[in-house]
């Protein structure tokens, strides 16, 4: 199974599999063997973990990402209120200094429901496709989607309550998202209505911010309450077809988070903060197939693992032509 097909099948909901011995590159085996036998290294890990429990590092990347997310969403609002025509419309479709942009999932819904594509929508869709392919696909989720930000705040609350044993996380089957994607696509095709837009918190929030709040926000609040009290990050993890659409786009993206086996202490700090921890399966001792592993398509490039990793084993990587050759 190639790296890409593994990445795609995990995106669609399959659990990551342990590599068979023959799948692990000889060099990776050597490094793992050295790590296992290195007693001082294991001692170092213990000290490291104790030290980190006392001094929590600020999440610099997270703050930057929030600033970018808020800025982009405010740009829609400012552009409208001040009538400066920078970024007109909402996240579903917009014009950036005149250039058409269309959210890929909204465009897909419209194309399936209407069964006709006007040239402006095609231009907007292709532009956005290329843009998010370059930027990593699900990068949209963590760096732009307004629901992602609210869900992160809800998650902080959920984790606080969970640490006091007041709530418990109830995970769902990750394949649900693939089913939702298929079902909502079929519904758009068969009913002729953009059914998913009715419940899409991304569209609802974006419009509420720009054109004023409405009843639809009640739906968003219900989703957030569900995530706080019942299931951590449920919408983004198990439901949102937008995430899957962008995940597919970003599967072959040059922009990735890359894992370096040699530096890794296998502490698992990255997996604790990750929205989609299955993509970080490779950091578990013995799971890495190569010395350097690209993190899969479901990764939102949010960078929390990059911040969380004490040994800099996870880093953003923009693969140029040189890396591909």
């Amino acid at each position: 199974m190639s790296q890409l097909s593994r990445s795609l099948s995990e995106l669609l909901g399959r659990d990551p599999k342990k590599p068979r011995p023959e799948e692990v590159a000889p060099k990776a085996k050597e490094v793992l063997a050295a790590q296992r036998s290195d007693k001082t290294r294991i001692e170092e890990i213990r000290i490291e973990i104790a030290h980190k429990a006392q001094n929590k590092m600020p999440e610099k990347l997270r703050r930057k990402r929030w600033a970018v997310l808020i800025f982009i969403n405010l740009l829609f609002l400012i552009s409208y209120v001040l009538d400066i025509q920078m970024l007109e419309g909402a996240l579903t479709a917009s014009r950036f200094v005149g250039f058409h942009m269309a959210d890929l999932n909204s465009a897909l819904q419209v194309m399936l429901a209407y069964k006709h594509v006007v040239i402006n929508l095609l231009i907007g869709t292709v532009t956005v496709f290329i843009m998010w392919w370059l930027l990593g696909g699900r990068t949209f989720c963590s760096w732009v989607c307004p629901y992602h930000l609210l869900a992160e705040w809800a998650e902080i609350l959920h984790l606080k309550l969970a640490s006091k044993k007041l709530v418990k996380d109830h995970p769902f089957d990750r394949r649900a998202r693939t089913w939702f994607w298929v079902i909502f696509s079929i519904l758009a095709l068969v009913t002729g209505y953009t059914v998913f837009e009715t419940v899409s918190p991304t569209g609802i929030l974006s419009r509420a911010l720009i054109y004023g709040p409405g009843l639809a926000l009640i739906w968003v609040v219900l989703l957030l309450l569900f995530e706080i009290f019942y299931s951590r990050r449920a919408w983004c993890r198990y439901a949102c077809p937008i995430g899957l659409t962008y995940g597919l786009v970003g599967a072959t993206s040059p922009f990735k988070v890359q894992y370096t086996l040699e530096n890794c202490f296998h502490e698992g700090e990255c997996r604790k903060v990750c929205l989609v921890p299955h993509v970080l399966d490779t950091v578990i001792m013995g799971r890495a197939r190569e010395l350097k592993v690209d993190i899969g398509a479901d990764c939102t490039r949010c960078g929390r693992c990059v911040d969380a990793c004490p040994t800099s084993s996870l880093n953003f990587k923009f693969k140029g032509l040189g890396d591909l050759l």
Binding site: G89, T92, A93, S106, A107, V110, Y193, T194, E197, G203
Partner: peptide, 12 residues
């Protein structure tokens, strides 16, 4: 019907 199918709900 066609209108609701084709509108992308962006408010431009």
């Amino acid at each position: 019907q066609k209108f609701l199918a084709s509108c992308i709900k962006c408010g431009q």
